[in-house]
Design a protein around this nucleic acid. Structure first.
Lengths: 220, 220
DNA sequence: TCTGTATTTTAGCACGGCCTAAAAACGAAG
DNA sequence: CTTCGTTTTTAGGCCGTGCTAAAATACAGA
């Protein structure tokens, strides 16, 4: 019973949505439809197939989570995606913004041991060109980092905004930096201890001190 | 109007069968079914789709050839396949016998300019690990050399055996030198204008005159 | 030229993966 | 607890890619 590229993409999307807010939650049919640029009807259909294949836990109207097997496939795909991105940027000279779609195709090329060989060839990179972590142990994917410790270009999702005075929290909220928001690091401006971020399609600046209090994941 | 992996494989198979015997010929439905491990009915069906997309010239019961567009796609795929094979062997350390199936998947990853970048990264290799030539100009793929012009040790595949009298053709066939056969040049015996070949694991001798009438591609 | 065999095509079926429209279930608010 | 708006599922259709069985066509030998 093989798993098609479409089905693999569903598993990745479920993974992504499940961990959106820091801890495991159910992914809904509607959210998946948005994530996959599809329709709820199509999603329901495919979820039922995935359920029959024991890759997800599915209960009508209740949303889905991954089974252990589904989780393994999703995290393997994510790792392979990031490794291919490193290859494309470092070896073929692509820009970091160009590689996502190509890696999206390459990650579905399956061969036992290919990820290990690629990883070794690339010198066991720890992050992909977007700053997302590359790890062998999927557990580590879920650990939160302060925004200040990411790398240039890293895409992130805010999970926790450390307590501070109300004024500071309001500032963070005004910048769009609330749990659930996704963004990307544009530049570390060391000279002024500033970070330039892209949040909700707008450029936003925060101090390094503030960046230490915002905890994020760098998922998918 | 996109072209699926299945359709791409059909174009490659048509290409392969069309040039099997050194010069262009029609590929039949039955031969394609064998080549693609499918059934004649399925092949007919897909050929009709490819014809609608103007990738092949198709006439019922008559067999098919590639259009210019179909030819371009087929030769691009073949080039990409061979480049990926070089990558897998030279960079990831696979054995030459392991890489075909992986390259079969990788060749369908499409991105404008990817082949050129890969080619440059690999140092513009001239042959893949199986000895098949890698060329930018598809025309060159078809260029055949007479056996007499190869070098000592060269591996080859016979593509065309020039017309001669029946007796001579029977002699060539008895030596195993028929289109499709692969072999290797063991020695040029200049003193006697002879060539020693290894064909089907047996040593075989032919005259230099005969060697001029047998056209081959080289396989390193 | 006819006829039998081999090849090819058509017909009909199934499933994956997509859609829209309609029905069903859920959950919040009165 | 009932009703209303939202979400999800079902129903049914379309296309691509496969199949088998039956019909059509081509070809070679008598």
């Amino acid at each position: 019973m093989s798993i098609s590229a479409t089905e693999q993409n569903y598993l990745k999307a479920i993974y992504k949505l499940s961990y959106r807010y820091g801890k495991e939650s159910l992914a809904s049919t509607g959210d998946l439809a948005k994530e996959l640029s599809s329709t709820p009807a199509t999603v329901t259909d495919t979820l039922q197939r995935l359920s029959r294949k024991n890759l997800i836990h599915y209960r009508r109207y209740q949303g889905v989570t991954l089974t252990d097997e589904g989780m393994g496939i999703a995290t393997d795909l994510i790792r392979l995606h990031r490794l291919w991105e490193v290859f494309l940027v470092e070896k073929l000279g692509y820009g970091w913004h160009e590689v996502h779609d190509i890696a999206e195709q390459l990650e579905h090329v399956f061969e036992e041991g290919l990820a290990e060989r690629l990883d070794a060839f690339l010198g066991h990179p720890t992050h992909d060109p977007h700053g997302d972590p590359i790890v062998a142990d999927p557990q580590e994917l879920q650990s939160l980092s302060p925004l200040s410790e990411l790398e240039d270009g890293a895409a992130f999702t805010v999970h926790r905004v450390a307590d501070g005075d109300t004024e500071w929290l309001q500032f963070a909220a005004r910048q769009g930096l609330i749990p659930g928001t996704s963004g990307r690091i544009m530049e570390f401006i060391k000279a002024d201890s500033l970070l330039a971020l892209l949040v909700n399609k707008k450029q936003v600046f925060i101090s390094h001190a503030s960046a230490e209090k915002i905890f994020v994941t760098t998922n998918v």
